[in-house]
């Protein structure tokens, strides 16, 4: 969001600027964009809601809430996702702090590794977890001995979701904290603040928008996660099926209306996330513009 601001302030890149291309080129490009977005995004999304609500709202409600397994899937997603988001928020802040405030050997490698979960296919992530914590995995026998269940259970789902969404918060915070610099933090220390006071009173208020943005993106991705969770869940209905897995299962079982109903809830959550993100971006822009105006006044 910080880069978008820089671009927005540059004259000539705002869209009102140069009109050197002939009209037909502009219209062609705009129509292409609208057509692609409509066919690939808008129509399918609307269709999900249309299909889900085709038999009226009451049926929709029954489809969602009457089935115990569907109810459990919704409940599971709502319990797995927050834990993964909290873990990634803590991890993201810690990593961004380490990377932007300290110089240490291997710093660049660490930054590269943060991105790894983006690059690896989620299915492979699932397999990796199986090979570590599964029955035949490295720690499998030890865990079995102590009676701790990771795969095919709640901890495995959290682990897979956390892994896949690991980079979001850190990626969002690193540039923000780099731009802020350590000056204000050093000033707080010179005025007698200890580490916690410095973090809560100075760092956190300064990074809050970037942090919130990272958390929203992380949340969106965590709710939709399918591949890695599919592998570690073992697909036990009513036990380890999250919402995306439930959608797939209902679809496979030709229970199309039910499948669409669950899918519509997932889509709705995604839309809410998108709206929250847009509002936040809007607010950030306004805040920055206000600060600029005020600066210009004085």
């Amino acid at each position: 969001m910080h880069t978008s601001r820089a671009v927005g302030h540059k004259p000539g890149t705002t869209g009102h600027g140069s009109h050197t291309e002939p009209a037909w080129v502009r219209w062609l490009l705009i129509s292409c964009a609208i057509a692609v977005i409509s066919i690939l995004v808008i129509i399918p999304v609307v269709n999900v809601f249309y299909q889900a609500l085709a038999n009226g709202f009451d049926t929709y409600r029954h489809q969602l809430l009457d089935d115990a397994e569907t109810r459990h899937a919704i409940w599971l997603t709502l319990t797995v996702v927050p834990v993964a988001v909290v873990l990634n928020t803590i991890f993201g802040v810690a990593v961004a702090w380490a990377v932007t405030r300290f110089q240490f050997p291997g710093r660049t490698i660490l930054i590269a590794f943060i991105d790894l979960p983006f690059a690896i296919s989620p299915v492979v992530v699932g397999l990796m977890i199986m090979l570590m914590f599964g029955r035949l995995g490295i720690w499998g026998p030890t865990l079995e001995h102590w009676g701790i269940k990771i795969v095919f259970a709640y901890p495995g789902l959290v682990l897979a979701t956390t892994f896949v969404t690991l980079p979001f918060v850190a990626r969002e915070l690193i540039p923000v904290m780099e731009a802020l610099g350590a000056d204000e933090e050093t000033a707080a220390v010179s005025l007698g603040a200890n580490g916690w006071q410095m973090f809560w009173r100075i760092t956190l208020p300064n990074i809050r928008l970037g942090l919130l943005y990272g958390v929203i993106l992380c949340n969106a991705r965590a709710m939709g996660e399918f591949g890695a969770v599919r592998v570690v869940s073992g697909g036990i209905s009513g036990e380890t099926d999250t919402m995306p897995l439930r959608v797939e299962k209902l679809f496979q079982e030709y229970e199309l209306p039910e499948s669409f109903a669950v899918a519509s809830v997932l889509t709705l959550l995604a839309l809410v996330t998108l709206i929250a993100k847009t509002l936040l971006e809007h607010q950030t822009q306004q805040q920055l513009a206000r600060a600029d105006d005020e600066q210009a006044e004085t």
Partner: peptide
Amino acid sequence: FQHYALFR
């Protein structure tokens, strides 16, 4: 501080 480092 050189650049003041006021809490913004």
